[in-house]
């Protein structure tokens, strides 16, 4: 009964563990459709994830899948990609996973420009552990560990990624699900470190506490606050206050790490052989 893209889902594992109205399933859907657009080879693709609600996504995808430790998904993925550069590697992380405990791995994967496609499910909160603040929780938003509102400024994830060296940076939302699919597809087509931030709703651990309503209300919030980047660039900062740009935010070309390494091996081996001959 399911349509074509769902060949990328392990349907026998459904229904999934996520709460009613949780946006993670929408991101997962967008991801499977991106796999469809990419005509992804399931036998040569690895999906790696960290720890968190969102990171459970790897278990629902029909690839070689690796559900790792909190924050470390990119480091595991770096090992896989460097070991077997011919494999396509996707990395799924939560906002806390990628920018809190895994923040160091995030900036270093970007610095290396290693060919991984990172999809960050940003629900502004630590969902799995019940709603503690994350480095992407908006200032003043409420969390169990910030009952009066967070006192810390959040990262701007795309800015962080770009500054650290990522060569493809995009942001989508679960409301703009088709755009999200296209952004993931483009990120995967791009050679180098690609970051796609997916703004998603955690109605249970974030929405309720911040009076944002249910999953549907939070989708509408995304619709109202996500401004296509072409339009956002024309707006005054004051007009963008509280809003965020969506779409392809940054794209550049730079040498990719595993390519560089393969060339390095070739040159080293040639030099070694010649030195031996001489």
């Amino acid at each position: 009964m399911q349509n074509k893209v769902n060949k990328y889902l392990r349907s026998e594992m459904l229904p999934h563990i996520w709460c009613p109205g949780c946006g993670n399933g929408i991101v997962l859907g967008a991801l499977t459709r991106a796999f469809g657009l990419l005509d992804c080879d399931q036998d040569n693709t690895v999906v790696v994830s960290g720890i968190g609600c969102s990171s459970r996504a790897s278990g629902y995808l029909d690839f070689s899948t690796l559900h790792t430790t909190h924050g470390r998904a990119l480091a595991f993925a770096t090992g896989i990609k460097l070991a077997r550069p011919e494999l396509k590697v996707f990395v799924i992380m939560g906002d806390g996973d990628s920018t809190g405990i895994g923040g160091n791995h995030f900036i270093h994967a970007a610095r290396r420009n290693i060919d991984l496609t990172a999809i960050i499910f940003n629900n502004s909160i630590y969902g799995m552990t019940g709603g503690q603040s994350s480095p992407l929780s908006p200032l003043n938003s409420k969390a169990t560990t910030a009952p009066q509102g967070t006192l810390e400024r959040p990262f701007d994830l795309p800015e962080l990624a770009r500054a650290a060296g990522a060569t493809y940076v995009a942001r989508g939302t679960t409301y703009h699900a088709n755009m999200l699919t296209q952004l993931i597809k483009n990120g995967a087509d791009h050679k180098g470190f690609s970051v796609v931030e997916a703004i998603t709703a955690c109605p249970i651990s974030y929405g309720r506490r911040n009076k944002m309503g249910n999953g549907y209300d939070m989708l509408l919030w995304q619709k109202e606050h996500g401004i296509p980047v072409e339009r956002a660039r024309k707006l005054e900062p004051s007009e963008m206050e509280g809003k965020f740009a969506i779409g392809e935010l940054h794209k550049s070309d730079a040498p990719e790490f595993t390519d560089i390494y393969e060339r390095f091996i070739d040159e080293k081996q040639i030099n070694h052989r010649e030195a031996k001959k001489a």
């Binding site: 770096t78 090992g79 460097l82 070991a83 494999l87 080293k268």
Partner: peptide
């Protein structure tokens, strides 16, 4: 290692190093 076609990487810390070797081992090396 490169002379053997193998890969060497200096990771950003020891958590990452351990993670990377597990990933590479799962990939068969």
């Amino acid at each position: 290692l490169p002379l053997y076609g193998g890969k060497f990487i200096q990771m950003e810390d020891e958590m990452a190093s351990m993670a990377a070797i597990i990933g590479a081992s799962l990939a068969g090396l």
